[in-house]
C-alpha cells in the first residue's frame, strides 16, 4: 500500500514531519511578531521549556490537555513579560537579557518539573477531519492531527494577514522600523512592544507544551534540546515573513524526522551532521541573502534589537 523507498514509510514520515515541526513553528511565529516590533528576544528556548513543564503539569493535574496548553501560554507570556520589563522599561541590554531568560527558564523548569518525571500526560484527541481524512495517502498525512497542529497553520495565515493587512499590524511594523518616528507620530512604542513580547512568549509556551503533551509525550529535563534556537534561526531564514516561516519550519522539522528514521532504517549518516544542518542552512541563507542585491529582500526590521527611550 505505501511506497517504500530507502526502507522508509513516506506518508507516515510526512505526517510525523507536521507533528515534529509544530513546536518550532509556533515558537518562531511568536518570535517573528516580536522581531517585527523591533525586539530581539533570545529567550525563546527558556520560554519554550517553561511552557513545556507548565503545560505538562497543568495537564496532569487537571487531566485536561487544553488547560495544559492554556497554562503553557500564560507561563510563556509571563516569562516573556519579565524580559519585557527588563528591556523595555529598565532598558537592559536585549541580548544579555534574552540569554539570561533562556538559562533562567531551563533552571526553573527543572525545578518545577521534579515531581513529573516518568508520568504519562492525558492524551490529546486527534481531530480527524470528516471525509477529508478518508482520502487515501493524503488523508492520514494532512487531516489526522491534533488541534494544535491546525491552530499553528491557522496562526501562520493570521500572522501574515495581521502584518500585511491590518492597521495594528502596520503600526507594529512601523514601531519595528523606526521607534523614534513612531513615537513622534504618537504611538506608544513601549506598550506595543510589551504586547508583542507577551504574544511571542505565549506562542513559545504553546510550542513547548506541544512538545511535552503531544509529541514526546512526557516531561524530561531540558527536553526542548535547542528547539528554541532553531526557532530563532528560522525567523532569520524566513526573512521575517510568515509564509516562508512555514516552509522553513517544515524543512527543519523534516530534517529532524528524517534523522530519526534514517537511524532506525540503519542508514549511516552521522546524527550530529543532521542535527547541525538547520543551523548550517541558516548560516548559508544569511550569507547568500546579506551579500549585495539580495540585502533588501532580507528585510530585517531596521530597529531590531535597538533600545527605545522616549526622550522629551
Amino acid at each position: 500500500m505505501t511506497d517504500l523507498l530507502f526502507g522508509l514509510n513516506w506518508p507516515q514520515l510526512a505526517a510525523a514531519l507536521m507533528l515534529a515541526s509544530t513546536p518550532i513553528l509556533l515558537a518562531a511565529l511568536g518570535e517573528l511578531v516580536v522581531e517585527r516590533a523591533g525586539v530581539l528576544n533570545l529567550g525563546v528556548e527558556g520560554m519554550m521549556i517553561l511552557g513545556a513543564v507548565a503545560g505538562f503539569a497543568a495537564g496532569v493535574e487537571t487531566g485536561a490537555p487544553l488547560w495544559g496548553f492554556l497554562a503553557a501560554a500564560l507561563a510563556g507570556a509571563g516569562l516573556a513579560l519579565l524580559f519585557g520589563v527588563l528591556t523595555q522599561l529598565l532598558l537592559a541590554n536585549q541580548v544579555a537579557a534574552g540569554l539570561a531568560l533562556t538559562l533562567f527558564g531551563l533552571g526553573l523548569s527543572a525545578l518545577v518539573g521534579q515531581g513529573y518525571q516518568g508520568i504519562k500526560p492525558p492524551p490529546l484527541a486527534r481531530l480527524e477531519v470528516p471525509l477529508l481524512s478518508e482520502i487515501p495517502v493524503l488523508g492520514p498525512v494532512l487531516f489526522r492531527h491534533d488541534p494544535v497542529v491546525y491552530l499553528s497553520l491557522l496562526l501562520v495565515l493570521a500572522t501574515a494577514l495581521f502584518l500585511a493587512r491590518t492597521r495594528a499590524g502596520l503600526i507594529l511594523r512601523a514601531v519595528g522600523e523606526d521607534a523614534a518616528a513612531a513615537h513622534a507620530l504618537g504611538y506608544r512604542v513601549v506598550r506595543i512592544r510589551l504586547l508583542a513580547i507577551a504574544w511571542g512568549g505565549a506562542l513559545a509556551g504553546l510550542g513547548g507544551a506541544h512538545l511535552s503533551l503531544v509529541r514526546v509525550p512526557q516531561w524530561t529535563e531540558g527536553m526542548t534540546a535547542g528547539a528554541g534556537w532553531i526557532a530563532l534561526a528560522l525567523v532569520v531564514f524566513a526573512g521575517w515573513r510568515s509564509g516562508r516561516l512555514l516552509l522553513g519550519a517544515y524543512l527543519f522539522g523534516g530534517i529532524t524526522v528524517l534523522q530519526l528514521n534514517l537511524q532506525a532504517a540503519g542508514i549511516a549518516v552521522p546524527v550530529e551532521l543532521l542535527s547541525m544542518s538547520p543551523y548550517l542552512v541558516t548560516i548559508l541563507v544569511l550569507v547568500i541573502m546579506s551579500s549585495g542585491r539580495a540585502r533588501a529582500a532580507l528585510a530585517a526590521p531596521a530597529d531590531l534589537g535597538r533600545p527605545f527611550h522616549a526622550a522629551a
Binding site: 502596520l170 503600526i171 511594523r173 512601523a174 522600523e177 518616528a181 513622534a184 528585510a299 531596521a302
Partner: peptide, 16 residues
C-alpha cells in the same frame, strides 16, 4: 522626517 523607509508612501501616510 518621521518616515519609515521600508514602508510604502501610502502606508506611511496611513500611520499618520
Amino acid at each position: 522626517f518621521s518616515l519609515f523607509e521600508a514602508l510604502s508612501v501610502a502606508e506611511n501616510i496611513a500611520l499618520g
